[in-house]
Structures are given as C-alpha cells and as structure tokens.
C-alpha cells in the first residue's frame, strides 16, 4: 500500500505541473484558437528565470514566483505581437508550423547563451519529509502539488469572472460579436498570450527544482501539456487540470506496474485513445452541439 501511495504522490506531483502547463496552452487556445507549440520553451525560460533569481543572484526564493510570471508573460505577448499578429489571417497549418519552429529557436537561443547541459535549482523547502506509515512526502513535493493546483484554480476563477476572461471567451465564440461589444481583438489576443506565457513561466518555476533547467525541459513540458489538454478537452480549463493530473498519475502507475522502458509510450497511447474515441476530451466544458 505504501508503495502504491508513493507512486500516486509522484504521479500527482508531475501531474500538477502538467496541469499548470496545460492550463496556459488552453487559455491561449480558448481565446485565439491557436495552439502554441512554443509553450514548452516559455516554461523553460521560466525555469531559467528561477535559476537566475535563486542561484545566480541568490535572491529570496519567493521572488522567483513573483518576478517570473510577468516577465515570461511579457516575452509571450511580445512574440504574439511580432510573429503571431502578422499571421492572424493565415490558416491553422501555418500557425502550428510557426510556433513549432519558434519553440526550437527559443530553446536553441537559450542553449547557445548558457552553454551547459543542465542548471540545477534547489527546492523552495528543504526541511524534513513527512512520514506516514512508510509513505514519505517531502515539503517540496507537497508545495508543488498544492501550490500548482491552487494557482490552477485561481486562474480558472479569474478566467470565469474577470472582465478580460469574459472578453476572451466572447472572442473565442464570435470574433465579430465580441468586437461589436467593445472588445479589441488585438488587446484580447495579446492578453491571452500574456496570461499563457505567465502560466508557462509559473510552471517553469515549479518544475525547476524537479527537473532542472535544460533544453529538453521545453519538449517535455509541451508534449505533456498538450496531451493533458487533449485529455481534458482542449477548450476546458477544469479539463486541463484534471487531464494533467490523470496523465501524471497514469504515467506513474504504468511505469511502476507495466514497464519502465515504455513509460513514454503511455502518454502517447492515452492521447491516441482520447483523440480517436472522444475527440472532445474527457471533461469538456460545454457539450458541443452537433449541427
């Protein structure tokens, strides 16, 4: 039993990070109907920013959580302005390709400037772990699971009740209509990217002590975030959170009880099954009306 609990805790830890990553992807998709394949690179930059604050400048840890989201958000908004805005009239195909290669360009730029395999970042809490019937849980793990999920829920509430959240939802359902209601497309799109970038940055700060900062982080985050988003239903915020947790836990369980060498296959299998049998996701926000 203790063993199963350990596996579940580890799954929840990565699942919470996946959820946060997926949430940012879904926010951008909900408002702009584009999937940002550079999202993983934003998370990597967030983790790097955490390294700078905590290790390089030796500032207090909480500053990484405060400074990183707006910083990465601004980077994302800038990229929206420079690259995505000129492509707004292009089809989905073009946008996907642009963001795929944007992600590579950002990762490479990071690698070139900080020529190293991995930057290690310490955890925020280093105290003794909690022990309960042979189940160990470090303060760090507890913080990642609880902190990431609290932030996820806060984002959902912001989106549901904030003015810009309403604007984004309006924009997603009907661009013309939203414009008539006084929402500016440019401003809403830019804000969506800002919010998506900020959440990627936060995911980066959470993941930095768990994975370190490396180029591989960007691929790990985007693929997990995307799969989590698809599982949840790509337009559903609560779906992204549940999808992330489900992905983390099932990866962990499969690796523990099926085969560790095939761990990466599990997420792909899950993605495939959901896309084929329930393309609207397991937790869709609204029931799509087939007309």
């Amino acid at each position: 039993m203790a063993e199963l609990a350990l596996v579940l805790i580890a799954g929840a830890k990565f699942g919470a990070i996946y959820a946060l990553a997926a949430l940012g992807l879904v926010v951008v998709h909900k408002a702009t109907k584009t999937v940002n394949f550079a999202h993983g690179a934003f998370a990597m930059l967030g983790a790097f920013s955490s390294y700078l604050v905590v290790v390089h400048w030796q500032w207090p840890y909480w500053m990484a959580y405060v400074l990183t989201p707006p910083l990465i958000g601004v980077v994302a908004a800038l990229i929206e302005f420079l690259i995505l805005r000129p492509l707004r009239r292009a089809d989905m195909f073009t946008v996907v390709i642009a963001t795929v290669f944007l992600g590579i360009a950002l990762s490479e730029a990071f690698r070139l400037t900080y020529n190293t395999e991995l930057l290690a970042v310490p955890g925020m809490f280093v105290g003794m772990p909690f022990v309960f019937h042979g189940v160990f849980m470090t303060q760090e793990t507890l913080w990642v699971i609880a902190g990431a999920l609290v932030i996820c829920v806060a984002c959902v509430l912001l989106f549901r009740y904030g003015r810009l959240g309403r604007g984004m939802r309006a924009m997603a359902s009907n661009v013309r209509g939203a414009q008539l209601c006084g929402y500016s497309v440019d401003r809403v799109y830019m804000f969506a990217w800002f919010l998506g970038g900020a959440m990627a940055g936060l995911a980066g700060v959470f993941v930095a002590p768990v994975s370190g900062v490396s180029v591989e982080l960007s691929i790990a985050i985007i693929s997990a975030g995307f799969v989590a988003g698809v599982i949840g239903g790509f337009d559903s915020l609560k779906g992204a959170i549940l999808g992330g947790l489900l992905l983390g836990v099932s990866e962990s369980l499969a690796a523990a009880y099926v085969s560790s060498a095939l761990k990466n296959c599990i997420s792909f299998l899950l993605l495939f099954v959901v896309l084929m049998w329930r393309p609207e996701g397991l937790f869709p926000e609204t029931v799509a009306r087939r007309v």
């Binding site: 394949f37 989905m92 195909f93 995307f226 698809v230 792909f268 993605l271 495939f272 896309l275």
Partner: peptide, 19 residues
C-alpha cells in the same frame, strides 16, 4: 487516424506514430 485530424491534433497524432 491522420485523415480525421487537421492542424495541431494531426501534428500530435503523427508525433505519436513517430515516437
């Protein structure tokens, strides 16, 4: 699966095959 999807979903489905 490929003929059923476009855009980002197709990218991911093909990525599944690749991996």
């Amino acid at each position: 699966p490929g003929t059923r999807f476009r855009g980002h979903n197709l990218a991911m489905v093909t990525l599944v095959f690749q991996s």
